[in-house]
């Protein structure tokens, strides 16, 4: 395992520069690191710590608070079935039980081939499409039992590669503009 790639290190520097205080970049940088390996490796957390001016333990402690940040490996596709009220009323628990049987794993586990991790999600703000499912934080719904089989089949065969990138939510986020508004005064203050 290694730390952030040179490309990501560079991206990380530009993210840090967007905030009045470095530590604010901690969560965006964790997302960046997670996109690399699918989870936060020790080495990546050390890099994030250095960039944010905190200890690696603080990065780990902070990351552990957040559901999206993983400190253990996950499958290539994290499949999250929402079972909150609107989805439950649309049969989410039947879909989730079916998902467990279909993938041969329980919620929280990863298939042997490393392809799927199954999660039970809280409301994903897609309740009009109940039952709502996210794969690597891309939305699908309404998903019924047959729809679930089709979805995982399409994922496994690579048919959804364009729609569902592997890991990470910032992979396709492109921020090029630096802070511009108060450039002159900035130098004087620091």
């Amino acid at each position: 395992m290694s730390g952030l790639t040179p490309e990501n290190l560079h991206k990380a520097e530009t993210i840090v520069a967007l905030y009045p205080e470095r530590r604010s970049a901690l969560i965006p940088l964790c997302h960046l690191a997670q996109a690399q390996e699918g989870y936060l490796t020790e080495e990546c957390m050390e890099d994030v710590a250095l960039l944010c001016g905190v200890s690696a333990a603080e990065v780990r402690g902070t990351a552990s608070f957040y559901d999206m940040l993983h400190t253990e490996p996950v499958g290539r596709y994290v499949v999250a079935v929402c079972t909150n009220i609107a989805c439950m009323l649309a049969g989410a628990y039947s879909v989730l039980t079916h998902a467990e049987e279909h993938l041969g794993i329980r919620v929280g586990q990863t298939t042997h081939d490393g392809l799927f991790t199954l999660e039970e999600a809280e409301c994903l703000a897609g309740c009009d499409k109940a039952v709502c499912v996210q794969v690597n934080h891309r939305f699908f719904g309404p998903v019924d039992r047959e729809g679930f089989d089709r979805l995982t089949g399409d994922l496994a065969s690579g048919r959804l590669d364009d729609e569902v990138p592997h890991h990470g939510v910032l992979n396709r986020v492109e921020r090029t503009h630096e802070l511009e508004a108060h450039r002159e005064s900035e130098g004087a203050e620091r």
Partner: peptide
Amino acid sequence: GLDLVVHPGAGAYICGEETALIESLEGKRG
């Protein structure tokens, strides 16, 4: 003049509460 930054959360309902949101934006637990 103004700069605007889009900041991602990381999965915690409580961060919608405004003071937790500020903590989270400061790079801490919510």
